[in-house]
Structures are given as C-alpha cells and as structure tokens.
Nucleic acid binder design. Structure first.
Lengths: 172, 172
DNA sequence: ATCGAGACTTGCGGATTTCGCAGCAATAGC
DNA sequence: GCTATTGCTGCGAAATCCGCAAGTCTCGAT
C-alpha cells in the first residue's frame, strides 16, 4: 500500500513532452505532484518522492532532471532578506518615455533590483529593490534609477511589513 | 590545500549565535557563503559546499540544519508560473480604511495571492496575484478583494512581461 | 586562572541515496 | 506492419548522508 498518489498513469506522461501552442512545455499531474513535493522540501530524496507520487526512484530522478533542464523549476535556497542584513525594501513604480524594454533591461542589470516586471496600468514598470539601509535605498532610487535614460518619473512604496511570501506556484 | 574559500575563521562563527538588537540572528561570512552555494544549487552535496567555503562536511551539515531550523533560509523548488499554467499575474495596490493589518491578513489567506506587503506611500498594501486566466483574475480582484472589509479602493497592474526574478538575497 | 560552553575537525562505520545502465512496454511516426 | 523514441522499472556500484566519539581551540563567566 504505497497507493494513494496519482493513480492511473496510462498515457499521461506524454503530456509532459507535448508543447502547448505557445512553446511552453505542458506538465502532467505527476510532474505537478513532484514539484509540490520539492516545494515542501527541495532536498527530499527521490525515493520518498516516488513513494508519494507513485513512481520509481529512477523515474522521479529523470523527471526532476528534465524539469530542471527545461527550466520549468529550479531548486534553490531562499532567505529572509531581513535576517541576511537587508533592512530596507521598496517597490518602485516607474514611467518611461521611449523604449520601455530597454529601461527594464537596465534595471535588471542592477544588483539591488530583485524583481522587474513590465506592466499595464499607470506604471510601465514595477521594480522591487532590496537594500541594506535607508541611505542605500535613497541612493539607488534617486541617483541610479532616476538617472536611467527614458525614466520620466518614479513612485516608491517602502516596505513596512511583509505579510506573505510563498513559493507554492503549481499547487492548489 | 583545501584552501581558497573564506580564510581566517578564528572567531567568526560566534556571530552566528549573537542576536542583533532586533532579535534576528546575525550571519557570519561563512554562513553567507554556504547560502550562496545553495542558491546556485539547492541539492549540492555538503562535501562540495565544504570544499567551497573551507569547512568540513560535518560542519556544513550542522550549519545548514541550523539555518533551516532557525528559519533563516529554506530550500525549495521554485517554478515559472507560466509553464505551470498560470497565465495572468498582476500587482494590486490597495487602500484601506481602518485596520490595515487585518486587511492584509485577509489577503494573505487567499490562495491566489502570492505576496502581500504593507507599504508606505500612496498604497497601504501591495498584493501580487497569480491566476490561471483573465476570468480568474477579474474574479479575484473585483469580487473577492474589493469585497474585503475596509478596502476602499484598488489599482491593478497586469503583468505584461517578467524581466527579472532572482533569489539571490544575501549574495553580492 | 580555571572551568564550561560552543564550534570545528577528523575519523569512522552503517544506512541511505544517487547514478548509470540494461531491459521492457507502450506510443508515435513512417 | 515495423521501427525509433520515450518513459518506466530493476539492479548493482559508487557516493552521500548521518550520527557519534574524541580532541582542539576560543570566548566568556565564575
């Protein structure tokens, strides 16, 4: 009775190699289940995962390797910025004149910028900044970001308290 | 000559147990280096990490375990939302009348909400939403979030293109 | 000055895990 | 119908993990 798990397994796995119309590899239920296991513990042994999802150890190993190779997931350590010495964080909304994408690229090149996304709405770009202290944050926003070519205006939202932060994509 | 690495190592490790004034455990350079290793590959063997940071396998094992126990870091799989079937994402800026924190808690309880932070600035809360499609996103924002007690107004920024997303806190 | 605690090292087996490879079955393609 | 491919299983061999003991060193407190 290592049962439960995903059952069936007849022709499901072929989905994992089938490309959906936009080039992104589609995932079947088993791979999803594997990802969920690794979201709980990125170091969980393959055999344990296999038991949970109803696959052999070797099969899990192959699928995990493929998921990593394809870039579907990565197994990494994530930390709480505060305990690692970064005391000030902020989200910055940015408006750009001209080429938005090149501005986003310039932001992406900055090490203090953790997250860059182009958006629809009253900002062209949202960027998350992680800094050591107020001075550092001020410097990044006022000296570096505002100096970028094409940047018309910025609006900052300094983080007061992080309430939720999950890595549970693919689960639900 | 298993040299290179972090050198010195005289009394650094005591920092790891010293609490900085706000209760957050302080990390020394060696723990930082270990975290960096695991940010590159969360499954890297302890011996390999030890070689890189200049510690024995056993010592690395102890430190990693402590870092996990203390909640300083976690080793998890992270995925690209798009390839896992979530095609619409948005950041939502929210203004609240009354208790901001309880509103943030309510948001945190929603599974579609990946990220919640209380901020200073023209929004009280920023929340990142991950949805399967437009209908789902519309439903979450207009039916669920706007219906929350205390929510006065919202402004949405639909993601057009994710340009950068790192998990490299603690590195630099 | 001495003692105790904490952190690290070395060394060591045993249990566990990883890894590569040889089959085998089912599917997709020709 | 036949073949190539893909995914899975099973199985040894190698590597890793894990707990533990003994000994060193430094710091801080008695």
């Amino acid at each position: 009775m290592h049962s439960e798990a995903v059952a069936s397994r007849s022709a499901d796995q072929r989905d994992s190699s089938r490309e959906s119309r936009h080039g992104t590899p589609h995932l079947d239920a088993v791979s999803l289940a594997i990802i969920e296991q690794l979201q709980e513990d990125g170091r969980r042994p393959y055999a344990a995962i296999g038991k949970a999802v109803g696959l052999s150890e070797a099969a899990v190993r192959q699928r995990v390797q493929k998921l990593l190779d394809q870039g579907v997931m990565q197994i990494v350590a994530v930390t709480d910025p505060l305990t690692v010495g970064f005391r000030r964080q902020a989200m910055v909304g940015i408006n750009v004149e001209g080429d938005v994408e090149s501005a986003a690229d310039a932001l992406s090149a900055m090490s203090e910028v953790e997250y860059v996304v182009m958006t629809a709405g009253s900002f062209d770009i949202l960027a998350e900044i992680v800094c050591e202290d107020d001075d550092h944050l001020l410097d990044v926003i006022n000296k570096r970001i505002r100096a970028l070519p094409g940047v018309r205006s910025t609006e900052s939202f300094v983080y007061l308290k992080l309430k939720k932060q999950t890595y549970m994509w693919g689960t639900r």
